[in-house]
């Protein structure tokens, strides 16, 4: 596990660059890709929300998953995690089915997905990230408790470890979720809007953390809303609106034209940035 952490931070200078797949079936998948999504279609109550998504997420990248509200971004993350049934297609994690690779995945759900009045403390929540490592009926060992506390330290929440989670601000709640994922020490992190409702100082520190993860060779996929900061935060983007509009190195594919395709064409960069901002408040 630890060997990856020590890898040099340099990556191949030329990113694998692929234009939007013309025919989804035509993509060749690498067996070493952290996440390989093969022709995945997902529907809720027969209403399709993801169509033929077919791509490899490259290793060691900080990937932005961008698209308008209701584009299926959360659904894509859930499909990767096996939390929603896929109608067709499959997902491979480092070439193997999800059921064998759960420990490699760390998940940061949308903050509204849980009840913040639940009677647990910050430390309790962070320890939950480690439950996957002990199995049914087993309790956490001392080593896990230590790892949870280290994760809290990394997000600067040590002082609040014994607080009930209902007494946290939005930014603090987000950091608890982040610490919980960090405690998992996963190879791949899937984060759903980790910047929603956090103040700018917290946002900066979270970005720094994500860069640390990437530099340690981890793959991070992050649903993101603020179009202004995409280029600064992510080195790879997936533009999604039910289908994958395009994906590739940020410098190559994050263009106004692709954004227009993603956001329906009628929206200008400015007005969609404005809606994105408005949604954050």
């Amino acid at each position: 596990m630890e060997t990856r952490t020590d890898r040099p931070t340099t990556r191949p200078a030329v990113p694998e660059h692929r234009p939007a797949p013309a025919s989804p079936a035509g993509t060749d998948h690498s067996p070493n890709a952290p996440i390989s999504i093969h022709d995945v279609t997902v529907a809720y109550d027969r209403k399709p929300v993801l169509w033929d998504v077919d791509l490899d997420v490259p290793e060691g990248r900080l990937v932005g998953l961008i698209g308008p509200n209701g584009a299926g971004k959360s659904t894509l993350l859930k499909a990767i995690l096996g939390l929603v049934p896929v109608i067709s297609g499959r997902v491979a994690i480092y070439g193997k089915p999800l059921s064998k690779q759960r420990k490699l995945l760390g998940y940061v759900p949308q903050r509204e997905s849980v009840d913040w009045d639940f009677p647990v403390t910050v430390r309790d929540v962070v320890q939950m990230g480690l439950y996957g490592q002990v199995g049914w009926f087993r309790r956490l060992r001392r080593e896990h408790v230590r790892r949870a506390d280290e994760a809290l330290e990394r997000v600067g929440m040590t002082d609040l470890a014994d607080r009930q989670i209902s007494q946290l601000s939005g930014g603090q709640q987000q950091r608890v979720f982040l610490a919980r994922a960090l405690a998992q020490d996963a190879q791949i992190y899937l984060m759903d809007e980790p910047f929603a409702g956090v103040d700018s100082a917290t946002e900066k520190s979270i970005v720094a953390l994500l860069h640390d993860l990437r530099n340690a060779g981890r793959t991070v996929v992050c649903v993101h809303h603020d179009l202004q900061t995409v280029a600064a935060y992510f080195d790879y983007v997936i533009l999604l609106n039910m289908r994958v509009v395009t994906h590739g190195a940020t410098a190559d594919v994050y263009t106004e034209e692709n954004l227009r395709k993603t956001y329906g064409g009628q929206l200008t960069l400015l007005s969609s940035a404005a809606t994105a901002l408005a949604q954050r408040h």
């Binding site: 859930k78 995690l81 096996g82 939390l83 059921s99 759960r102 995945l105 998940y107 759900p109 997905s113 849980v114 009840d115 639940f118 647990v120 309790d124 929540v125 939950m128 990230g129 439950y131 996957g132 049914w136 009926f137 309790r139 956490l140 919980r180």
Partner: peptide
């Protein structure tokens, strides 16, 4: 008692519970 951690996790965050295999 036996399923303390499993019930705690799945009551608080069913999504993570499923993702971790519970």
């Amino acid at each position: 008692g036996l399923l303390y951690k499993e019930l705690k996790l799945s009551s608080f965050d069913p999504g993570l519970s499923d993702a971790l295999g519970y």
